[in-house]
């Protein structure tokens, strides 16, 4: 019980003092708090005009890394799909003539299922799927929320921050 927060659990049926019962002084106290904040620095922002650039450690929507030659890194091993707790990922593998033999003909992430846990990124043996900085996800139809390769493939250079961050983290352990 000692963990109970004082905010969540105000004492029920507390007896109000006479001063509080007078009501007006409490209003004045509240107003004073508001006025104080008028002169403090702002911590809200004018979204969407003012945007927030996420740090590298941020887990935005998962994307697929696209190499300079326009090819995906993914070899369609299906591990991300296997590890994904809410089964958001579907991978359909197929054969390619390239050296790596295998590639995803279809790769879809259902962004309504995704819980941004980052397991897919962690399990991927190819560093082919990483968490991006994109947190702006809006859909009007259920089908719009299923992102295919067209929306997932992201040039490697746009993911530089995250890829460097991952490398740094890996070297730490």
């Amino acid at each position: 019980m000692q963990y109970r927060s004082k905010y969540n659990n105000p004492k029920p049926n507390r007896k109000l003092s006479l001063w509080e019962k007078l009501y007006l002084p409490e209003i004045a106290r509240g107003l004073l708090t508001t006025i104080k904040h008028l002169f403090r620095p702002k911590f809200t922002r004018q979204y969407p005009e003012e945007r927030w650039e996420a740090p590298a450690a941020f887990r935005g929507r998962p994307v697929l890394v696209m190499e300079e030659n326009g090819q995906e890194r993914c070899v369609a091993c299906g591990l991300c799909s296997r590890v994904c707790p809410p089964l958001a990922i579907e991978v359909q593998a197929s054969e390619t003539d390239l050296l790596k033999e295998r590639y995803p003909v279809r790769f879809e992430i259902n962004m309504i299922r995704c819980i941004f846990c980052g397991f897919c990124e962690e399990v991927c043996p190819e560093e082919a799927i990483v968490m991006s900085k994109d947190y702006e996800l809006v859909y009007r139809k259920y089908d719009d929320a299923i992102y295919g390769k067209d929306k997932l493939l992201t040039p490697k250079k746009d993911l530089k921050d995250r890829l460097e961050y991952l490398r740094e983290m890996r070297n730490k352990t």
Binding site: L87, E90, E108, N110, I112, Y142, I146
Partner: peptide, 13 residues
């Protein structure tokens, strides 16, 4: 399989 067990009618798979 796991996929068969947990599929919903919205899942394309």
């Amino acid at each position: 399989s796991r996929l068969d067990r947990f599929a919903s009618k919205f899942d394309r798979w």
